[in-house]
């Protein structure tokens, strides 16, 4: 016991020694997706701000593969010295662990969850020729034509897919899921009317809804989206408790010394509050989050992991 305490004390002093000098060299910021996606863009928005605040270069490194698992694993397996941070997202930290046969890391224990950056709602959009003007009418339509409606999604096990499955479950309707390789081709078939509906994320749906290319019926969060204040939530439309968001945030390998955790959390939040970052994220339909502290973020990740474990199981999305 004493030895254990001594070891703990030693680690503590060692890490505080380390922290005094921190940051003494460049940080790498691992993005588990290819360049150009929303997660990558937000990392590249944050990197220069962190660089200015920390006085060391922050180099964004894309490490795509295996639905984000490769990049997340790089972060998980790095030394917890504050020189490797990365983006962790709903896919890598909540969905994949339930969806995939094996994930090489533990989304909770292997990470220090630093700060939640973005939470975006999904929007239920329908092709303009679909007669339903509200969620209730859509449910009625699906019930009179069981198995005739299709819903598209960016991939099997994406939030768009799982939202659709949850919708089917809660309304007792039957629709066919059509998976695509990314949201773009799914949207193309939605615009052409080959599929009738889709749970698209707000960022990509917003311009189409505003331009009248598609009709929005509801958002998937408990609160209405500030960008579309007139749009009801699914919760209001009779699907009590329907609450799904797409999210991502900054994470580091565990156990990160407490002082570095606090510093990084503060710097990320500060960067997020800078007006130019804020307006740019908002322009893409992304909202910040009420989850602020690392402890809240950890609790949030744990809750999400639990939610999606249930959803994935219920949806039958898990292969084999």
């Amino acid at each position: 016991m004493i030895r254990l305490l001594a070891a703990a004390a030693l680690i503590a002093t060692a890490s505080s020694l380390q922290a005094q000098a921190w940051p003494a060299k460049p940080l790498r910021f691992v993005v588990p997706y290819p360049p150009g996606g929303p997660v990558d863009v937000s990392a590249r928005l944050l990197a220069p701000k962190l660089q200015a605040a920390l006085g060391q270069p922050v180099v964004v490194e894309n490490k795509p593969g295996a639905g984000g698992n490769l990049g997340a694993d790089v972060v998980a397996k790095s030394a917890p010295d504050g020189y490797t941070i990365g983006m962790g997202a709903i896919a890598t930290h909540a969905i994949n662990p339930s969806l995939m046969a094996s994930v090489p890391y533990d989304p909770l224990r292997d990470f220090t969850h630093l700060a939640l950056v973005v939470q975006v709602p999904n929007v239920l959009v329908v092709h303009n020729d679909v007669p339903a003007k509200s969620v209730a009418e859509l449910v009625a339509l699906a019930k009179t034509r069981p198995g005739k409606l299709d819903f598209a999604s960016g991939s099997t096990g994406s939030t768009g897919h799982l939202a659709g499955e949850l919708f089917k479950q809660m309304t007792g309707t039957y629709m066919v899921h059509i998976p695509y390789k990314g949201a773009a081709p799914a949207v193309a078939d939605l615009l052409a009317g080959r599929v009738q509906l889709m749970f698209d994320n707000l960022a990509s749906a917003l311009p189409r809804v505003k331009a009248g290319q598609v009709r929005a019926l509801a958002v998937t969060t408990l609160k209405r989206a500030p960008a579309l204040p007139d749009l009801p939530t699914l919760d209001e439309s009779g699907l009590k408790g329907f609450d799904m968001t797409t999210w991502w945030g900054v994470m580091a390998p565990a156990p990160l010394p407490a002082d570095i955790t606090a510093r990084l959390n503060a710097e990320v939040l500060k960067a997020m509050d800078e007006p130019d970052v804020k307006t740019r994220l908002r322009a893409m339909g992304m909202e910040g989050s009420a989850v602020r502290s690392p402890a809240q973020f950890s609790a949030f990740v744990a809750a999400e992991a639990k939610l999606y474990a249930r959803l994935v199981k219920a949806s039958g999305a898990k292969p084999d």
Binding site: G36, G37, P38, V41, A203, L206, P207, R208, K210, A211, Q213, T279, R280, A283, M284, G285
Partner: peptide, 14 residues
């Protein structure tokens, strides 16, 4: 499209 959206411009028919 990402670059345009960051600028607050939504590509589309409009």
């Amino acid at each position: 499209i990402g670059a345009l959206m960051i600028q607050g411009i939504a590509p589309g028919p409009q």
